[in-house]
Design a binder for these strands. Structure first.
Length: 516
DNA sequence: TTCCGACAGTGGGGTCGCAAT
DNA sequence: ATTGCGACCCCACTATCGGAA
């Protein structure tokens, strides 16, 4: 199949807002692909590279080769070229990659260049991703969507499932099961502002015996880790299914020592201090990202696995069993010091006290879980709802950036500063684009155009007069910002026209919050 | 007819490894 | 030694479609 054919489909998908029409266009392309091409077509139309990483990003694609006149490259040829680019390493690899990229792009038409550049940059933005792909695979193959969804969660990726579905139909799709050693998509949590709302709003499993039963569990601020044990062979995977086995040998040892031949566990890896309090996320994250001298690293920043779920043990899959049963099995397997503390909910006040205690102990928050819920891999908000404390500050807008995509032509991302009463200046603490409705975007585009002190192509500096109420999760150490601190997960709550910049929060107030 | 679950888009800060400078 | 880039860790929130209620 020609790449051109895929691009025509992508253009059709991008041209409509109807999800049914997107699904139909993708399904059509999947049907036209044959044999091994299905995998590539499915991956490309979901905005995924089968290679995952090729060492080239947006920056490496800023200037493209002179395009070809006629489309001639097949999807298989594109795949081969991308694999070749990704396999370069060592001295001179950057130059070789550049040459190979130029060769490839010289064979592509202008449209194809744009498509491949967006694909590589991870910014296809055609209004369809994995969700549309699932429906399209079902439509193209005649296999029911629930079976497709389940296979994708167990296989980790949609593209191989597309291939199986179009080749062998339902029987081949049903063959895709949980394989110890191969990561499944982790179950995700929705969120709620308060513990009470998490308890009320939770989606309960219709088939659950006791629909009311729920528990609260500590939410640890570390790295999600999925551990697979096959005899002495242990493998560790992150939330995005990256393998990190070699980076956390102390975790591998703990899993290897568990009294089971095979097991698949879900949990969080976190660096704990000697007194048991958690290190900051930055410490855990840096340790987990480090690949150097692990003997020294584990000495300096030991990481503990804290498990909260068991998906498989000794040949038995548990993903369809209720959480209460999975955790009972987990308790029999994993020592308590490696299990996430949890408590059944008997009344909302008790759950709230649990939240308060855990936050006081330095943890990120809690997750409310329905005890009757199955492990819904790859989905959010099904039976798990997280709650975290929220801080707010009144800050001053120092500059704004022009948006892109659906925010093109609107001033979007705002730069935030705290007042320094000693100098009268403002100290930047970060940026945010979150929490803005379309109406707010229109309003702020007008407002900041009025306050602009220059006309930047990208960043527009403004007179520091507009106060905005910002919510955020906490403070972190920063080398980027002048105060040495930055906001974590900042988002806009509202613009405050009842306050002048003189009344905004000061840098002293921010520092007093601590945490960085 | 209204409501709501799922999804895609729009980006945030920090950190490491690696190759080039 | 420093810098820039790529990749990946953590992520919040709104708009929209289409099926559920």
């Amino acid at each position: 199949m020609l790449l051109h054919d895929v691009i025509t489909t992508s253009a059709q998908v991008g041209a409509t807002r109807s999800r049914d029409a997107k699904r139909a266009a993708v399904a059509d392309a999947l049907r036209r692909a044959d044999g091994d091409e299905v995998l590539l077509v499915a991956a490309y139309l979901a905005g995924v590279l089968p290679q995952r990483r090729i060492g080239v990003g947006w920056r490496g694609l800023r200037e493209l080769a002179v395009p070809a006149e006629q489309p001639a490259v097949t999807v298989t040829e594109l795949d081969t070229a991308l694999t070749e680019i990704g396999s370069q390493n060592g001295a001179g690899s950057a130059g070789r990659r550049k040459t190979l990229v130029a060769d490839l792009f010289g064979r592509l038409t202008a449209d194809e260049q744009q498509f491949v550049a967006r694909l590589i940059g991870g910014e296809l933005r055609q209004g369809a991703g994995d969700g549309v792909m699932l429906a399209a695979i079902a439509a193209a193959s005649g296999v029911p969507e629930p079976a497709i969804r389940r296979a994708v969660m167990l296989a980790g990726y949609a593209a191989p499932v597309a291939q199986a579905a179009l080749r062998g139909g339902l029987p081949e799709v049903e063959q895709i099961g949980l394989v110890v050693g191969r990561p499944v998509r982790p179950m995700l949590a929705g969120s709620a502002p308060t513990v009470a709302e998490a308890i009320d709003g939770e989606t309960l499993d219709p088939g659950a015996l006791d629909r009311a039963a729920q528990q609260v569990e500590v939410k640890l601020d570390g790295i999600r880790v999925q551990a697979h044990k096959l005899g002495d062979d242990v493998r560790l995977f992150t939330r995005s299914l990256e393998e990190i086995t070699d980076r956390l040998p102390e975790v591998v040892e703990i899993v290897r020592a568990l009294p089971a031949e095979t097991a698949v566990l879900d949990g969080e890896a976190i660096a704990l201090r000697a007194d048991g309090r958690p290190e900051s996320f930055q410490v855990t994250g840096a340790r987990t990202a480090s690949q150097g001298d692990t003997a020294q690293l584990r000495e300096q920043v030991p990481v503990t696995p804290m498990f909260f779920d068991l998906l498989h043990v000794d040949g038995e899959d548990l993903i369809d069993q209720p959480l209460a049963d999975r955790q009972r099995r987990m308790d029999a397997l994993v020592p308590q010091r490696c299990r996430v503390p949890r408590q059944q909910i008997t009344d909302p006040d008790g759950a709230q006290r649990f939240f308060d205690d855990q936050v006081a102990a330095g943890h990120e928050g809690v997750v409310v879980k329905a005890l009757g819920s199955a492990y819904a891999a790859g989905r959010r908000g099904a039976g798990w709802v997280k709650v975290k404390p929220r801080h707010t500050l009144d800050l001053v807008v120092l500059a704004v950036e022009w948006g892109s995509g659906r925010r093109k032509g609107l001033l979007s991302n705002i730069h935030l500063g705290a007042r320094d009463p000693q100098t009268g200046e403002f100290i930047m603490l970060g940026k945010t684009f979150k929490g803005m409705t379309d109406e707010m975007l229109r309003w702020q585009t007008e407002r900041f155009t009025e306050l602009a002190t220059d006309t930047g192509d990208w960043v527009v500096r403004v007179r520091p007069e507009q106060v905005v109420e910002i919510a955020f999760d906490g403070l972190q150490r920063s080398t980027r910002y002048p105060g040495g601190i930055a906001l974590r997960f900042a988002r806009v709550l509202r613009y405050r026209d009842d306050k002048t910049a003189d009344e905004a929060d000061t840098i002293q107030t921010v520092r007093a919050l601590g945490g960085a």
